[in-house]
Design a protein around this nucleic acid. Structure first.
Lengths: 244, 244
DNA sequence: CGGTTATGTGTATGTTATACACAGTTCTGA
DNA sequence: TCAGAACTGTGTATAACATACACATAACCG
């Protein structure tokens, strides 16, 4: 729970690294590593054991170098995580999706959600920190905006819609993570007991529990929220430019 | 960036603390502190300097005791943060709201959003960890479900809607935090430069920037997303139980 | 009044990111 | 050709942090 020593980052260097826009050194010994190799190693660890397992020491050990050797390639851990994220993001492929903004955006959301399922550590890696705009990050944003291009929605609203959907997906990702945590059963059981004991204070909640509102559904959790949001967007479009 | 030593929590003890259901000790010296006083101190620090400033050492110093003294009252830092959150949450007051589920839920969302603005540290305090159900946490949930009681929505959907709205609010809170971070300007400027240089790869994004999609609006950021979501919910209600 | 139970303290440990100096390596320019 | 500059990997050190543990002390119970 120790917090980062708040090292001041150098935005210019961080972005250059992220975009691969660094000058190659001309002198000195041959580098034995590359930022790419370090990133790939870190991603492998995160995929297998979660983001918490990714420490500088661990990555270095995996690469058979000292911890400090990494710092020759990456300004600090924060930048490494940024690299991991942008690399893992890849690019969305919405090539063949037809039928207007709604199917396109739905497909976009599905791919994004799949990404968070494939690399659950992306959530903690991007939570509570500025989104660093790497090339892939921008590609996803671009794709979402493109999907909305012919929607008739004002530009600012397109961006808002993007944020709304990403928020939904990240919210789902967090719920999924909580539920997969060990001891989740135990917590739920104890909370249930508490609720029984204090039921009178929470009538609506008690009723909802009785009605099975908290029984896990097997439907894709993405759907309900996504439909709500897109219905809302459609309604707005309808109001703004009535049946043209 | 050091991670917590993953101490195993005792769910029973944690919940008992959160609900004030602990037995008072009968022997031994008079306690000089209470969990409440510790929590209040920690909240004061978090309000003033952010959650990162809340360390066990800092809280203890503020209370003029040793760090370890706190552990007589609180099992660990995790539990302290849980206490902080539930305390800061307070209870929503939707007493006088009339007009059906929509105005009630809107008011609920407004109060929740106000809370995140008043105590921005609630976001990091609850991010990436299980939501521990304290009395106030449950009160908020109960209020949201109550607001939807007469909506005609199935119980499971009411819960989903609650999650959807909370997700939106938390997403906004994160955006607000990013934007308030120092150096945000600099990052944006550099990202803008990068976008100019690689504009061809991101046509929709470039167009959106040109159209002012990223110019800050002065409207309450909560509104658009909330309206979208509620429109979507309304549409679903309309479909499920057509004009009864 | 003796034993049990709590409290507050001091000290120690383990984990983490990262600063810094050094020795060795490769290239460049005179 | 060769001296110096630039770069690499290493070893060691530091500063936060949460938290375990043992000890002296204080209050209560029978």
């Amino acid at each position: 729970m120790a917090r980062s020593p708040e090292k001041q980052r150098d935005p210019k260097a961080s972005l250059a690294l992220l975009w691969g826009e660094q000058e190659q050194p001309r002198r000195g010994p041959k580098p034995s590593l590359t930022p790419d190799r370090i990133t790939a190693t870190a991603i492998a660890i995160a995929d297998a054991e979660g983001l918490d397992a990714v420490s500088m020491q661990r990555v270095a050990a995996e690469l058979d170098v000292t911890t400090m050797a990494l710092y020759r390639y990456v300004p600090g851990k924060t930048d490494l995580v940024d690299l991991m994220v942008d690399t893992a993001l890849g690019t969305p492929s919405l090539g063949g999706t037809v039928g207007g903004w709604r199917p396109r955006l739905t497909e976009w959301a599905r791919q994004c959600w799949a990404l968070y399922r494939r690399h659950p550590w992306i959530l903690p890696a991007t939570a509570m920190r500025r989104q660093l705009m790497g090339p892939n990050q921008l590609a996803w944003l671009d794709a979402a905006l493109a999907a909305l291009a012919d929607s008739g929605l004002p530009p600012a609203r397109r961006h808002d819609t993007f944020l709304l959907i990403v928020g939904h997906i990240r919210s789902l990702a967090q719920q999924r993570q909580d539920a997969n945590q060990e001891g989740d059963q135990e917590w739920n059981r104890l909370t249930g007991e508490l609720l029984e004991r204090h039921g009178a204070r929470f009538p609506a909640l008690t009723a909802a529990v009785a009605a099975g509102a908290f029984t896990p559904q097997d439907e894709d959790p993405l759907d309900y929220g996504l439909e709500c949001i897109l219905d809302g967007v459609a309604a707005l479009i309808g109001r703004t430019a009535p049946q043209s």
